[in-house]
């Protein structure tokens, strides 16, 4: 059957996904298939790239047709998107959020800021290379990446999941000392932010 319009687009996007044959056995294949087809993305954004996420997930680009949708809390999410520059303060929150997510979990990094600092390359308050602090599965470059690129990044991630290659959370557990060392180098011994709202009450609220 000839496809055109959105059917053609869908077919082109998904073409790679259906053709993977690299699974070891059928249980693995099934598990990975389930995983790649139901990706829950944490509703969390940092930096300017976060503004491209609402269109990606709503009707115009409709990521849900590919099995990608939002999740409200870290415990329910599979993917966290680091959507731009992270200042030290944000990095603390990202680390805590990431550690709260349950396995398997993946990180998608958007924008040149996460790759090499982008236009904040000489800023005193943002990190330059995200993969030194957290394991990144997929980078999407651009400043900022359009929803199309985000979708392609997701497809590439789904493909890796389907092939069983995306295993950054294992990498994080195995090399925890390395990551922790880098985190402590810039954030100090106490990496996680404190839970209480003392700072808020102390200031008398907003």
């Amino acid at each position: 059957m000839e496809h055109n319009g959105f059917l053609l687009e869908q077919k082109t996007l998904e073409g790679d996904l259906n053709s993977d044959t690299s699974h070891k056995n059928s249980v693995d294949f099934l598990m990975n298939w389930f995983r790649k087809r139901s990706i829950f993305v944490l509703a969390y954004g940092t930096g300017c790239g976060a503004i491209e996420m609402p269109p990606t997930f709503t009707s115009r680009y409709d990521a849900e047709r590919l099995g990608i949708r939002g999740a409200a809390t870290p415990r329910q999410a599979d993917v966290i998107i680091v959507s731009g520059y992270c200042s030290y303060k944000t990095l603390r929150r990202i680390i805590r959020t990431y550690e709260q997510m349950s396995n398997p979990k993946y990180i998608l990094a958007l924008g040149s800021c996460t790759v090499n600092g982008g236009m904040y390359w000489d800023s005193y308050n943002t990190i330059k290379k995200l993969e030194d602090y957290l394991p990144v599965d997929m980078y999407v470059n651009g400043c900022m990446p359009r929803p199309e690129s985000i979708l392609e990044g997701f497809i590439a991630l789904q493909k890796e999941i389907g092939e069983g290659k995306a295993s950054s959370w294992k990498k994080y557990e195995e090399n925890y000392e390395f990551y922790r060392k880098n985190q402590e180098a810039i954030l100090g011994k106490k990496v996680e932010p404190s839970y209480d709202a003392d700072w808020y009450l102390y200031d008398g609220g907003l």
């Binding site: 030290y88 303060k89 603390r92 790759v115 090499n116 600092g117 390359w121 000489d122 800023s123 005193y124 308050n125 990190i127 330059k128 290379k129 030194d132 880098n182 180098a185 810039i186 954030l187 100090g188 106490k190 932010p193």
Partner: peptide, 27 residues
């Protein structure tokens, strides 16, 4: 800022580039 222990960053004797080179890892 959070737990900032260095020179206040907008004072002009604070050399941003030097700080970044010493404290952060570039690609």
């Amino acid at each position: 800022l959070e737990s900032w222990v260095h020179t206040p960053p907008l004072r002009r004797e604070f050399d941003t580039l030097e700080f970044v080179t010493n404290h952060l890892i570039f690609r």
